[in-house]
Computed example of a mutant assay.
Amino acid sequence: MAYIRKIGLTWYYTVDIGLTLEGKRDQKKKGGFKTKKEAQLAAGKIEDEVASGLYIRETDTTFKEFVAEWLELYSDNVKESTVRVREHEIGCLTRHIGKLTKMKDITIKKYEKSLSALKKEGYAANTLAGIHGTAKMIFKKAMEFRVIRSDPTQYAKLPRVQKTVEELEQETEIPKYLEKEQLSLFLKNAQNRGLEGDYTIFLTLAYTGMRAGELCALKWSDIDFDEHTISITKTYYNPGNKITAYKLQTPKTPSSKRNIEIDDMVIKELQQHQSKQNIVKMEHRKEWHDKKFVFAKTDKNYGYPNYIKFVENRMTRLLKTSKLPEELTPHSLRHTHTSLLAEAGVGLEEIMERLGHSDDEITRKVYLHVTKTKKKEASQKFSELMRNL
């Protein structure tokens, strides 16, 4: 039963809400009510919540403290690269919410002001959406842990970001890739003027459409030389580009785990590459990092997998010597693979499956761009057919 009393000019209530962790009587006290009836009504609401099990006693937990607890739980179920993204987004929020701000004091208004401040700093709409998504996960968990009574992100609205002309143009812009004649020139240059391993690396990327991280993580056990397939089951992770500090992680998405059929020419090149690698491996067998990587270092750090930046640097060199656009990247070879498959008449669904996408807007754009010409040709052929009747 609530205890109501008057202190000075205002009324206060005291309500029993259960026991503390130490087994002592726990009470909720609040004052400042102008009338006894106001205090009774407020106390009655608390009593009803306690009786129904819905009462939440908000704690003085700070944003920094709760985020650290949430991040520890979150990190157990996701890849390290994902955790790094969340840490960056949390850092953006913390600057404006304040690391010492109590969770219970973060209102919708305060939260929306934080998002508006980030918008003024120039963050793009996609980045703000990512920050908001992380915040929603944090405050949802705070509700589950009964740290707060209401979720400030639940009805919060993201600030509208006016897109620049460049951003609007990029939305419709087709990603850059190599035309088939350019790809042929690039691969010939890799074969004739490339550094050790260049031709095998870029032939594999171009003929499979795999990601650079998937290529760096590839092991000999992933290649079935009899069935002419490559199995993609992992990806390479090494943000610091320290050769010996790499990690292997699960693929980017569930659909990224796949088997890719490969051409005879690629199989033969990989077999030759394996033979050359075995010679170096025998010469340095005592120091060889024997984890069976296909694209392994053969100078220093013998046997360790090549890192993604290494592949990017090698490609930039070859593009320069081939007089091809130097802004292209290993990922551009995925778009090149898409364009050539589309030109060869392979369906979009089959291309998506080969690339390890359940759905991807960029792949769709490249496919539609390439097949647009074929659709025009089909229309023209139909018209010609009717005119000849």
Rank of each mutant, 00 (worst) to 15 (best):
K157W: 06
L158D: 09
L158R: 13
P159K: 11
R160K: 15
R160E: 13
V161D: 06
K163D: 12
K163E: 14
K163H: 11
T164H: 07
T164G: 06
E166I: 12
E167Q: 07
L168E: 13
L168A: 01
E169I: 11
Q170E: 15
T172D: 13
T172E: 13
T172L: 10
E179A: 05
E181F: 09
Q182L: 06
Q182R: 07
L183Y: 02
L183H: 01
S184V: 10
S184P: 11
L185T: 00
L185Y: 04
F186K: 00
F186E: 00
L187P: 00
K188T: 03
K188G: 04
K188C: 02
K188A: 02
N189D: 07
A190I: 03
A190N: 01
A190G: 04
N192M: 08
N192G: 08
R193F: 10
G194S: 04
G194P: 03
L195Y: 14
E196D: 08
D198V: 05
Y199V: 02
I201C: 09
I201M: 13
T204Q: 12
T204Y: 13
T204M: 14
L205V: 06
L205N: 01
L205Q: 04
A206R: 05
Y207I: 02
Y207D: 01
R211D: 04
R211Y: 03
A212T: 06
E214Q: 15
L215Q: 01
C216V: 07
C216F: 08
C216R: 00
C216M: 11
A217M: 13
L218Q: 00
L218D: 00
K219G: 09
S221A: 15
D222W: 14
D222Y: 12
I223A: 06
F225A: 05
D226P: 02
D226K: 08
E227M: 10
H228A: 15
H228N: 15
H228D: 14
H228E: 14
T229W: 13
T229M: 12
S231H: 15
S231W: 11
T233S: 15
K234P: 02
T235C: 06
Y236E: 02
Y236W: 12
Y237R: 04
Y237T: 02
Y237C: 08
N238W: 10
P239D: 04
K242P: 03
I243M: 09
I243Y: 10
T244R: 11
A245E: 15
K247Q: 14
Q249L: 14
T250P: 06
T250C: 08
K252D: 03
T253E: 15
T253H: 14
S255T: 05
S255G: 03
S255I: 04
S256W: 03
S256N: 06
K257H: 04
R258W: 05
E261I: 05
E261C: 03
I262K: 00
D264N: 12
M265N: 09
